[in-house]
């Protein structure tokens, strides 16, 4: 079940969004926060959300800082953030948080529901698991925790958000298993989780954990094509 949070200092906006969500699906649990601090404190206690509707212009700690806290301090790159703003112009730093979308006030009911649906589809994909064998033990890892694979001789190195695994295998068969998920191959020794990319540059890709993956010249076009393909899914 998807967990949703709404964070806005204006009570009426919060209840508007809450009503739209409950009207769409009564079962969806929605938590409401009236300031950035309360949301941060709640998350500090280990609580997580799948989707947060977050106002940019709120009280002492604004939406950018809350977003940054989630990404950098909590190291949580999975929670989807939808920014809400009365303006429709955004500073560059907002984009570093990698928000799913922006909504401008007055709010459009249709767009809120579209964002919930989009987040649900993405979550479903990310919650699928990747399985591999170390010794006789079969490991299963949710796709969202995988940052990238690197081939190292006869072994594959799997860099996840928490750990590094080594297992025997071929990079092609890894790619086959990930066929339906959002991965790209920027180099013949690497397979990268698109959703855990921070920035794609001309000849390298920076991942959320700071690792830099090379992009080979023959793959640049392919990387861009895949980027268009995956980003198209994100368009409402």
């Amino acid at each position: 079940m998807m967990r949703i949070a709404v964070c806005d200092d204006a009570v009426e906006i919060c209840s508007e969004i809450e009503n739209i969500i409950l009207d769409y699906d009564k079962q969806l649990p929605v938590d409401v926060f009236y300031s950035g601090e309360t949301l941060i404190n709640y998350m500090k206690d280990g609580n997580r959300f799948d989707l947060i509707f977050l106002d940019i212009e709120i009280g002492k700690i604004n939406g950018v800082e809350v977003g940054r806290f989630i990404r950098d301090e909590l190291n949580d790159h999975i929670t989807k953030i939808v920014y809400i703003s009365s303006k429709s112009s955004y500073d560059r730093q907002l984009f570093d948080v990698q928000p799913l979308n922006f909504l401008s006030k007055p709010l459009d009911r249709k767009k809120i529901i579209q964002n919930i649906k989009l987040a649900a589809t993405l979550l479903e994909k990310e919650n699928k698991t990747f399985s591999f064998k170390i010794g006789n033990e079969i490991h299963r890892l949710p796709i969202k925790e995988i940052i990238y694979f690197e081939s190292a001789g006869r072994q594959i190195k799997l860099i996840s958000t928490n750990e590094v695994y080594h297992f025997y295998g071929r990079i092609d068969s890894v790619a086959e298993q990930l066929f339906a998920s959002r991965f790209i191959v920027p180099h013949r020794s690497y397979i990268v989780n698109y959703d855990n990319i921070k920035i794609i540059e001309k000849d390298s890709i920076k991942m959320i954990n700071g690792d830099i993956i090379p992009v080979s010249r023959t793959k640049t076009k392919n990387v861009k094509e895949m980027q268009i393909k995956y980003e198209e899914d994100n368009i409402l």
């Binding site: 990698q98 990319i197 794609i200 540059e201 980027q227 980003e231 198209e232 994100n234 368009i235």
Partner: peptide, 13 residues
């Protein structure tokens, strides 16, 4: 017409 930012690039559709 949609223009969005993603991972260091902009996408125009």
């Amino acid at each position: 017409v949609k223009i969005s930012y993603c991972k260091g690039s902009i996408l125009i559709t």
